[in-house]
């Protein structure tokens, strides 16, 4: 019962502040709403007994990523001029995304619940993977090893991309 109340509370906080991220005119307020939203997601993880994920969520996203956002946002002009009109591609893409979202929500409403994945040997008690460090680590380095490697590789490419984009190469002298 109390879990239900907490779920609705944190879900409302998460969704409400996520909306505020999009709607706030003031960019600092938007970044702070993002912070509240991420902390709300961490609270939802705790309700799912995924303490490790909750701590990582707060540590990495709320603690570092949003701080970097704020760092950037504070350096740029936050009250800058009027917005440019949307490009055609943006309108088409957002319409497509909205259609996907509506379809997904409609399917969910029709079924009444998300499809529960079937586990081999349903009789065995299901240990929440995020609950214990050992279970989490084992899953990460056995079952999900390939996705982890791929994500790591993508991050590496992104990092290299940032270096290439932000560093001005003038002649071959710098590249050496």
């Amino acid at each position: 019962m109390s879990t239900d109340i907490f779920f609705y509370l944190f879900a409302a906080i998460t969704a409400g502040s996520a909306l505020a991220v999009v709607l706030c005119k003031n960019t600092v307020a938007a970044a702070l709403s993002l912070l509240v939203s991420l902390v709300g997601v961490a609270a939802l993880f705790i309700l799912l007994d995924a303490f490790l994920l909750a701590a990582l969520m707060v540590f990495v996203y709320a603690g570092a990523v949003v701080a970097l956002f704020l760092f950037i946002v504070m350096l740029i002009d936050t009250y800058g001029g009027t917005r440019k009109p949307f490009k055609k591609g943006t309108i088409v893409a957002s319409g497509f995304a909205l259609a996907l979202l509506v379809t997904g929500l409609a399917t969910l409403a029709q079924r009444g619940a998300l499809a529960t994945p079937e586990f081999a040997g349903n009789a065995a008690p299901l240990v929440p993977v995020g609950a214990s460090l050992r279970a989490y680590g084992e899953q990460l380095f056995t079952t999900y090893l390939l996705p982890v490697q791929i994500v790591g590789f993508l991050l590496l490419i992104a990092m290299l991309g940032v270096i290439v984009l932000s560093k001005k190469f003038e002649g071959l002298e710098d590249v050496k």
Binding site: L32, A55, L56, V58, A62, A67, L70
Partner: peptide
Amino acid sequence: LAVFAVSSLGVY
């Protein structure tokens, strides 16, 4: 991890 996570919010 919890100590690090919560204290990292102090920067705000």
